[in-house]
Design a protein around this nucleic acid. Structure first.
Length: 572
RNA sequence: CGGGGCGUAGCUCAGCCUGGUAGAGCGCACGGUUCGGGACCGUGAGGCCGGAGGUUCAAAUCCUCUCGCCCCGACCA
């Protein structure tokens, strides 16, 4: 491809709305253009990279026997009502009406549609198993789209769905997709890790995320260097937290005046105890209006996703000031486990179990209790893991003894064991060998296409621009005619261009009448792995210059040997 | 959803406080000199100052309302 004929326009200015480096570089390198918040056009240069990734994805999924299809982006509300997600998915689900006023959704994922297809076709265990996948534009109406392709509202996703007769079959399918993902991310030259994850709105039993390690990642992950346990903090557990040391045995429970002190920090400082020796009592409400009191150690936070899963609700939220006052009899800031109304469900996180003689609110304005002891002063009927894990916590694995380390990652893939959640709700069943009707056992497997390309840039760039890993590079070789107005340069470059193409090399030919400085800067910015420069001076000695974007090692090469040398480097 | 910021030339921004002829750099066009790391000189094109109301003799500038974009928060008892 000749640059002079190609649609690629780079820019020197950093776009004002681009926060992270991958977004900045994708805009500057003419790969994407924003159309609206979280909605982008893929320009030709960017699309080539996307296409490269899609080809890798297809290759690896096909190798596992998965079958590609394409489902509509728009699907009718009925399917979503059938699965229950019409009411459960929330505001991220973009709902639209057609001219007749009928409800549709712009699909954020396709469990309903694929299940609908399969239930029409498949009736017998003899037809199972199989795996259907597509690469398609999705829409999720994110609260806050950001970081370019990293968190768009409209985005390209590969989604696959496996159908099996039983759990054992699902395990095999799940493993196959896990392995395919590893192959895909490895082929992209990405440094990634697999972590345990929450299943979120998709639902199901088990789930893993594929994380590309990056400072700018939006996901927080903890990992144990000892046993390798790793999990998204949305899901992660911690081992038992060591309780803070205290002097002597707690005395009898007593009330202390704490005028105007509504935060743990204020009270802890006033009492002269560590925040870890306090119990925080949070009143959570939810869409069912069934408030609960959650007890967590004073220095820690509640994992609201764990809470939502435990309560089987969608939106746990801190209760309004009025509700807190009505339930605890005190203004916000003075709630505690002692003396809560009997009708209020109280759930204690494991982090407070080992506290002896802790401090907490007195359910009374301007007062806290100290030296509270479980069993003696107050009983808790319900214990659960509701802790938001963080780096420095003990590893939850039995007998491991390691300390969790925190890191950040970009979630590029997410695989789920769905089980029969959708097949049961939607009547996607088959007859087993005994003639009994059974719901199919499903898995689903998502992979963010644009996000993976963005992640690759996030991991592969320098101050001057992108450094494409070869498998994702829009082109393999950038051929630069440094002084195309020189007849000899132009002719030599043209010949190299033809020769490289004849050898099947994807070559991008900078034949523009630009100054050398501009061409070099652009070359660095767009980051094509191999650079072949034809310049007047070296050509006079029968040489061209070959270099790699990554290490910038330049080497003069005889014109006659250039193609061969390029082929050799591409083969590495 | 809450808080904050920003909408002025294709891009990055100044001008607004203190109302009075619309600006810079980059980019673009033309001419000349340059030509291996984003050249230089000259000439030029390009803007309903996001939109709608209002105040005023006069509004990019002050007021109100809207729309768009961006950032932060939604970790709290």
């Amino acid at each position: 491809m000749r640059w002079s004929q190609y649609y690629l326009f780079t820019t020197r200015e950093v776009p004002a709305d681009a926060e992270v480096v991958s977004h900045q570089l994708m805009v500057r390198a003419g790969m994407i253009r924003k159309v609206a918040a979280g909605i982008y056009s893929y320009l030709p240069f960017g699309w080539r990279s996307i296409a490269k990734l899609m080809a890798i994805v297809r290759r690896e999924l096909d190798a596992k026997g998965a079958c590609e299809l394409v489902m509509p982006a728009i699907s009718p509300a009925e399917l979503w009502q059938e699965s229950g997600r019409w009411s459960k998915y929330g505001k991220e689900l973009l709902r639209i009406k057609d001219r007749h006023g009928r409800d549709f959704v712009f699909g954020p994922t396709h469990e309903e549609v694929v299940t609908d297809i399969v239930r029409h076709d498949v009736k017998s265990y003899r037809q199972l198993p199989f795996n259907l996948y597509q690469i398609q534009t999705k829409f999720r109406d994110e609260i806050r789209p950001r970081f370019g392709l990293m968190r768009g509202r409209e985005f390209l996703m590969k989604d696959a769905y496996s159908f099996d007769a039983d759990d054992a079959g699902l395990d095999v399918a799940y493993r196959a997709m896990h392995d395919a993902y590893c192959a895909i991310f490895a082929a992209c030259g990405l440094e990634y890790t697999v972590v345990e994850a929450d299943t979120g709105a998709i639902g199901g039993s088990a789930s893993h995320e594929f994380m590309v390690l990056a400072e700018t990642g939006e996901s927080e992950v903890v990992r144990c260097p000892g046993c390798g346990y790793s999990a998204n903090v949305e899901k992660a557990s911690s081992g038992a937290l060591p309780p803070p040391e205290r002097d002597g045995e707690p005395g009898p429970m007593r009330e202390v005046a704490t005028p105007g002190m509504t935060t743990v920090d204020e009270v802890a400082e006033f009492l002269g105890v560590p925040t870890a020796a306090m119990v925080k009592t949070l009143i959570y409400d939810n869409e069912k209006e069934e408030p609960v009191a959650v007890l967590v150690r004073g220095d820690r936070a509640v994992n609201e996703i764990k809470l939502a899963n435990l309560l089987d609700v969608q939106y746990p939220v801190l209760a309004s000031d009025e509700k807190v006052a009505a339930l605890t009899g005190a203004p916000v800031g003075f709630a505690g486990p002692v003396g809560l109304p009997p009708g209020l469900r109280v759930i204690a996180d494991e982090s407070v179990r080992d506290l002896a003689g802790f401090a907490c609110g007195a359910n009374k304005a301007d007062a806290h209790l100290v030296d509270v002891v479980w069993g003696r002063d107050v009983e808790v009927g319900e214990w659960a893991d509701l802790l938001l894990a963080r780096g420095g916590d003990p590893c939850p694995s039995d007998g491991c003894g390691g300390i969790l380390e925190p890191f950040r990652g970009i979630e590029v893939g997410h695989i789920f064991k769905l089980g029969d959640k959708y097949s049961r709700a939607m009547g996607c069943t088959f007859l087993d060998e005994n003639g009994r009707e059974q719901p199919m056992i499903m898995g689903c497997y998502g992979l963010g296409i644009g996000r993976t390309v963005a992640a690759a840039i996030e991991q592969n760039h320098d101050d001057d621009g992108i450094i494409w890993p070869l498998p994702l590079a829009p082109f393999s070789v950038l051929l630069i005619a440094l002084n195309p107005q020189e007849e000899s340069v132009r002719r030599a470059a043209d010949e190299l261009y033809d020769a490289l193409r004849q050898h099947g090399v994807e070559v991008f030919y900078d034949d523009r009448p630009e100054r050398p400085g501009v061409k070099f800067k652009d070359a660095d910015l767009i980051g094509i792995p191999l650079r072949l420069v034809v310049g007047k001076k070296s050509l006079a000695e029968g040489k061209v210059e070959l270099s790699r974007r990554r290490d910038r090692q330049r080497q003069p090469v005889a014109v006659a040997d250039a193609v061969e040398r390029v082929m050799a480097l591409l083969g590495d």
